[in-house]
Every structure is written in structure tokens, then in C-alpha cells.
Write a protein that binds this DNA or RNA. Structure first.
Lengths: 354, 354
DNA sequence: CCAAATTACTTAAACGTTAAACCTAATAGA
DNA sequence: TCTATTAGGTTTAACGTTTAAGTAATTTGG
């Protein structure tokens, strides 16, 4: 026997298919008695609506799409940051009766690959949440002119139907740098992410403005750029400290890079936080477990995902949510930062270690 | 203007809807010339098939479901283990033209929540992959009698349409214990996961059989049980080492618990690996970054996910894949294990530290 | 040269649902 | 008492696709 349909119930109860449909959908024009009979039989036959059929006629699928872009090595799903965001997004959308479909980013836009929007259209996806979008993504223009609502993480797009969620990176980094300055550091370097991520620009802005506000001079040789990974952070740190050995503090634009800095420092014989203070960004689980545990900026990841779902759904309902929502990232002070050690500068140690 | 449909193309080309459908699907009974015209117009109108309509008539949605169960704190998506498995699963299914829908596990089976299978039926999901299923899950019997193929991770179900993927836990743990024994350890303890995970039983079996094979006596007081988390592992280790301070090696059934053991050891002043050797399980990213880096069993996570997709799809196609596929977990030796230190036993250190 | 087969289509039906329009009997309002 | 309304339905059509069953024109085989 195949699946039970409205027709099966209708026949068994002795009413029309429409009556069953309306009863189950809670319309008031079905008598209390028939309604009860219908529900009983539906239960008995373990009726599950065929959502494909419903979608076809209502033109609404009840599906929201998730794109986890940049899924090479250590990115995307396997990035320690993504999990909680996705959890929040999923919870937020399930609460409103939606389901989630996950799409793989088809890398080369040349061949037969479709744009994100086209992928959505086939499945009648009502809105999409994009994580890991970069400024050089080939489908950006496509997204801007989307007719379904799009929420991006960390990357405002300025389209009619595009929205974004993210942290207030500028003030977050400002706070981190201030924290380091408060501890007496004056040679504060930044290991930033690549410029194709728009957070990188914001975080740099936070760094610059903090320096200005604190009366510290800006030195371009204290700025390094990496790819948000451990290896990249380590590499960037090592070349930078070689150039400018008088650094006593590092702000890294991701915890992974901060962990890379820690690794690099260990190799050089620098003791964190005694010789070098390190601040990360994200507060991934690993951050609290490194030695020393990382001082970092906690992004409310779950809340970010949840907010994305909220915006998407309200836009789907024809409302006009704010085009950009910024949540606050909180500085969490742990063991990787401390008062600047005036006696023994990092410089000396580095010279020794080499 | 709304979406382009087959009808739009048909009118513009001057053929029937069927002709367009068949041309686009590659049937041979459309002339080369009309086919080309159809393709050109379809392209021009940026036609995207309405998959809901297709699903309705073919009774196949082209969707596979993913259930990431146990999504409390640190579990599910945010578990460092899940990401790569999901990446593999997604890649495997996209390659075959499928899409992935992710379902939230509705915890209490009492209220109005539906079984995993029912969730699938509504969306005509063709098969599902379940991660994090426990032996005490309320929907187990439902799953066993499923009419759509189900692949579980790490948990064989013995149903007509159920399959499972996982690692060969028994021989993996066997290798880990042998590694410790080879280093001279004789008091080897196990911090296992909770018994509701079937891997726990298998890992315990590996532990027992290794002990037997190596001629080491089994001592129940060297067995602890925790919840796979860092905190749980630490707690379990601390109470165990208090009871039996002569332990010189620990096998933990997850890297997170192993990291907890490391933390506990640090607090007691035990030096790893000098005073205590520790082996984990999973090879999560964190494992290589702890200090010391963890010796652990590497699960081929990506491959596990990919295999799940492969099995699911072949079962969807009416084939009969093996009901259980076990991949090999490889021992990766890092800094957390070393030769047993005969001079200074852990016992002495613990006594001192307390 | 005619029947049979092939080519290139078309028509009709179906998938399971919802929405709009319609209907009938009972009830309410004047 | 007659009409207007309401309650409780039913009938019909539509959503966009695929598939089975035609059909007319052309080609092939003997």
C-alpha cells in the first residue's frame, strides 16, 4: 500500500477531499463533528501531507536555503565557527515551521553550474542564508538583484532584498586594542584576514581608530595579512616578528590565526603572555583550551544564526526587516594577555632564539 | 512576470509542452532542430524546472535527509567531529544530483512531534542519514521498519532498509592499547563514552581484547565512563586517578575527553607524557593543537560521510549495498604518549600534588 | 508498390493539494 | 412570511511536470 492521501481520508469519512483539506488546515467552515471524524481517521492512517503538492499550488515551499561557501580545507561546515551559527539558524526556522535545505557551492561559475539563486528557484526555496561569501564571489551581482530575500553573514550587499547579520567588528576590535593598550602595550600588531572578507576591512578600521583614539602611532609594518587559518596565522606572525621584533602584543582577526601565533611564539621561545600578549576573535571552543587560553572576542554565534532566520522569515512574509543587524562581540579576557613585561623585551628573546 | 515554465517555452517555440519536457530530458524522439530551438529559448528565458511538480508526478524528490541528533550544548553541528562528515555526505550526494535537507531532531517524542520517518515522508525524502543516534532513542523501532533507506553513523540497526557506517572500533582501540603496552605501560585505564552510544561497547571490547592478547590483567577500577565532553573526561579522570593513582596511561574514547584528561593531569601536576600517556579518539582539529599534541585514532570523517551518501543512493536505486561498512581508523602518534617513566610513578606525583 | 516500421511529434491523464466558486438546507431578520 | 444570511459543505479548476497512449507523415523491407 502506498501513502495515505487526502482522498483516502475523504473516502473513509464520506466527505469531499476539500472538506478534509480544510478541516486539517483548521478552517472554521467544517462542523465540529466531521472535523473530529476527519482527525481521527487521519491519525489512524498516519496521514502526512504531501508537501510537494502543496508547494505546487501555494507557490510556497516552506524551505529556507543555507549556503556554506568556501568549503575547501577546514572551511565551511568543518570550520569551528559554523556549527553554532547553523544551530541557531536551524532552530530559528524550525520554530516558524520552515525546513532547511543545504546547498553546495558549485565553485567554478563557468561550466554548467547555476547561480545560488537559480538553485533556490528550482526548489522554490523562499529565502537563503549565505555564510562565507567573499567580495570576489562571481555571483554577487546575481544576489543583489535577487527577488527572494537573501541574508548574508558578515557581508552587506546593498540590494533590494538583501540583508546581513554580523558583529560590530569595528567597536569589537577597538575594545581589544584598548585592552592591550591598557596593559601597557604600545607596539600592537594586527594579523588580519584576507581582504576578500569584508570583516577584514572593518576589523582593520577598528584597529586604526583605536590606535588614533589611544594616541598610538600607526605603523604599517605592524600589519600582516593571512587566510584565517592556524598555519596562515603562524606564518604571518613569524615573518612579521622577524621584521619588527619589538612587538609585544598581537591582535589576530580569528582565533585560528591567534592559535597560529601562539604556535609561532612557542617555536621562537617567546612566552605568552609574559613576552607576548595575544588576542583572538571568535571565541571558538578551542580558544578556551589552548595553553594559555586565549583572550578573545566572543561572537554570539548561535544568536547570529537565529537572527538570520528571523530576518529571512519576516522578509518572506512581506515585512521589511532592517537591512543590517549588528550584534555585539564581547571581549573575554583569558590567559593570553597580560601587563607588558618591561624588563625583558620580546626583541631580546627573539634575537636569542634565532 | 512570474517564473518561466515549460508552457512558456512551448508557446514560444511552437511545440507542445511534452515535446519541450522530452527535449530537455534528453529523450531521442525530438528532432535535432527542434531540440536546439528549445534549448536556446530555455536558456534565453533562464528556465529552471519546478522540482515540486516533478516530484509530484515521479514520486521522487531527489532529496536526502540529514539528521544531526543530540544538539544540546556542544553536540550536533557544533561538535568538532560533525563538520567533515557532513562535507563528505554533501559532496557524495551532490555528485549524484541529489539535494540535502537537514532536519532538527524534535526531542520529546510525546507531544506533537513526528518521527524521523514521518518528517521524511512529508517532503518525499528518499533516504536519510542519521548522526548521533543513541540506543535509547525513542524512534529506534520506527527506524527499523522504515520503508525508505536509512544510514546510521556508528549504530547498526538490523532493519530491512537500515545500513550503517562507522569505524572498526574494536581493532582501532586494540591498536591504541597495544601502542601503550609497547611503550611499557601496564596500568592502562579507559575513559569510555556513555553506554547509550554503541561505539562505547565496541571500544570497550577493543580494550578488553587487547588486554587479553597482551597478557595484561583486566581491572574494573581502571574503567571510567563519561559523556564524550572535555568536562566529563576531566571529571572522570580525576575521580579515577584518585581511586587508582598508579595509572600511567589513559585511553579516552574521544579527543574531547582526552583533552579533559590533559586538563586534569595539568591540574594535578602530572606531566604528559612523562608521567602519564594519553591517547584520544577521532583526530579532531584540536587534537594536533593541544600541548602536548594528542596521540589519537584518526577517523576518516569525510570518507565516512561520503560512504553514507553512496550507500543511501545505491539503496534508493534498488540495489542492495552492504548493511554495514566499517572503515579503518589509523593510530596517529603525537606527543601525548611516551615510554613509561619507571623511576617516578604517577602515584608519587599525585600524592605530592594533593 | 503496399504493409510495416520508424520518426517526430500531440493529446490526455495523472500526481496531491489548495482556492475559488457554487450549492443546499437551515436559520435569522424584517 | 419572505428574503437574506449563515453553516457546512461540494464541484471545479489549477499548480507544472511526466508518462502513456495515440497519430500523421515519412521511410523501409520484401
Amino acid at each position: 500500500m502506498s501513502r495515505t492521501t487526502l482522498k483516502d481520508i475523504a473516502e473513509k469519512v464520506g466527505v469531499s477531499v476539500t472538506a478534509v483539506s480544510r478541516a486539517l488546515s483548521g478552517y472554521p467552515d467544517i462542523s465540529e463533528e466531521t472535523r473530529n471524524r476527519i482527525f481521527r481517521i487521519a491519525e489512524e492512517l498516519n496521514y502526512q501531507p504531501n508537501i510537494a503538492a502543496r508547494t505546487l499550488v501555494t507557490q510556497k515551499s516552506g524551505v529556507l536555503g543555507l549556503f556554506v561557501l568556501g568549503r575547501e580545507k577546514g572551511e565551511g561546515f568543518s570550520h569551528p565557527f559554523s556549527g553554532q551559527v547553523i544551530n541557531g539558524f536551524l532552530d530559528g526556522l524550525v520554530e516558524q515551521g520552515y525546513d532547511m535545505m543545504v546547498f553546495k557551492a558549485n565553485r567554478p561559475p563557468d561550466s554548467g553550474s547555476s547561480s545560488y539563486i537559480d538553485l533556490c528557484r528550482r526548489r522554490m526555496v523562499e529565502g537563503a542564508f549565505l555564510m562565507g561569501l567573499r567580495t570576489d564571489d562571481p555571483w554577487i551581482t546575481d544576489l543583489k538583484s535577487s527577488s527572494i530575500p537573501i541574508v548574508t553573514m558578515d557581508m552587506p550587499l546593498a540590494g533590494e532584498m538583501t540583508f546581513s547579520v554580523g558583529c560590530d567588528n569595528v567597536s569589537a576590535v577597538h575594545a581589544a586594542v584598548r585592552h592591550l593598550a591598557d596593559l601597557g602595550h604600545t607596539r600592537i600588531s594586527i594579523v588580519n584576514g584576507y581582504t576578500q572578507a569584508s570583516v577584514s576591512l572593518e576589523r582593520f578600521e577598528g584597529y586604526r581608530s583605536a590606535l588614533d583614539d589611544l594616541g598610538l602611532p600607526f605603523d604599517p609594518s605592524l600589519v600582516a595579512e593571512a587566510d584565517f587559518t592556524v598555519a596562515g596565522g603562524k606564518e604571518a606572525f613569524l615573518t612579521m616578528i622577524d621584521r619588527t621584533p619589538d612587538i609585544t602584543a598581537v591582535f589576530a582577526a580569528s582565533d585560528l590565526m591567534a592559535l597560529g601565533v601562539l604556535e609561532g611564539a612557542r617555536e621562537l621561545g617567546l612566552r605568552v603572555p609574559k613576552d607576548l600578549s595575544v588576542v583572538g576573535f571568535d571565541n571558538i571552543d578551542m580558544a578556551s583550551m589552548s595553553s594559555p587560553p586565549l583572550t578573545t572576542l566572543d561572537q554570539p554565534r548561535y544568536e547570529l544564526g537565529r537572527t538570520a532566520a528571523k530576518i529571512l522569515i519576516s522578509a518572506c512574509n512581506g515585512d521589511t526587516p532592517p537591512s543590517r543587524v549588528l550584534l555585539k562581540a564581547n571581549l573575554i579576557v583569558r590567559g593570553s594577555t597580560s601587563e607588558r613585561n618591561k624588563g625583558k623585551s620580546a626583541k631580546g628573546v627573539v634575537r636569542q632564539a634565532r
